[in-house]
Amino acid sequence: MNDSLVVIVLLSLVGGALRVSTPFIFVALGECLTEKSGRVNLGLEGTLVLGAMSAYATSYHTGQPWLGVLAAGCAGAMLGAIHGFVCKLPRVNDVAIGIAMMLFGTGLAFFFGKAYIQPSAPRLGEIGLGDWTGDAKIASALQINSLLLIGVAVAIVMWWAFANTRWGLILRMTGDSAPSAKAMGVSVDLVRFLATTAGGFLAGVGGAFLSLYYPGSWNQGLSSGQGLMAVALVIFARWNPLRCVIAALLFGATGAIGPALQSVGVTQGYYFFNAAPYILTLLIMVGSAGSKRAARDAPGELSITK
């Protein structure tokens, strides 16, 4: 009896990790890309929310959820491009602009999103990884969305490209030593602009997952700070895309602790367990503040590590 309870809890944790982690993966990868170029974009929370809204609205009007995903990416890329453009003006602080962009993104999403809170839009489909087992519980826990697979694929491509392509090396060079990049004739501002824009695209796609798959609707409390937590996650992952995925899965699993315990009848401390991802964020920030390894892996040009 007890064994089966443990199995159920573990299963829901895995299911939660697979279901909840996707937006973390996309935002963290976007932030990782941006930070590798030597700039911090704290505005990805706003990008995530605007992405969610754009995806939902597009899916509602066209009936095509995948068009919604594309629209979310484009909205994110637009916010990223604004961030990238403003930051290259002289004496502009990327952290301050990031916070402004976060408020701008959420505000824009709430403004245009008012009309879409009620209607229902077509959602993204799911892939049943556990269907072959014939067990309903396992099948429902292992249902995933293709965006998760795309996110993992993007992470692997990024990890490979950082070491094996000219673009990857130029990006790392720009992030670690702007004077070297300039001496080599690389336009630092352009690289950072492109990296921030691409990072925004990824974060926007993460938003599409929120409104079109899980939880699968559009409302103003949709993100609850996931975009900000993803920034902490990048530090935890020490700017490695593969570790970003692992860290995102870990965050997803902690987010599922509350519901998992509730499903087996443990209701005490439900809200406390729901706060687990935030507590984890706090612990990670405290832990990595004194971490020697995090300091060594950090891109040299980052304003938060300088």
Binding site: A163, N164, T165, R166, W167, L169, I170, R172, M173, G175, D176, S177, P179, S180, A181, A183, M184, P299, G300
Partner: peptide
């Protein structure tokens, strides 16, 4: 002052400094 990129290896620094560095190395 050194102009090598600290986080790249010596080989990476040399290859990327080439004007004709290949897109995929």
């Amino acid at each position: 002052h050194f102009t090598l990129v600290p986080c790249l290896t010596g080989a990476e620094n040399l290859v990327i400094s080439r004007a004709d560095a290949p897109a995929v190395i």
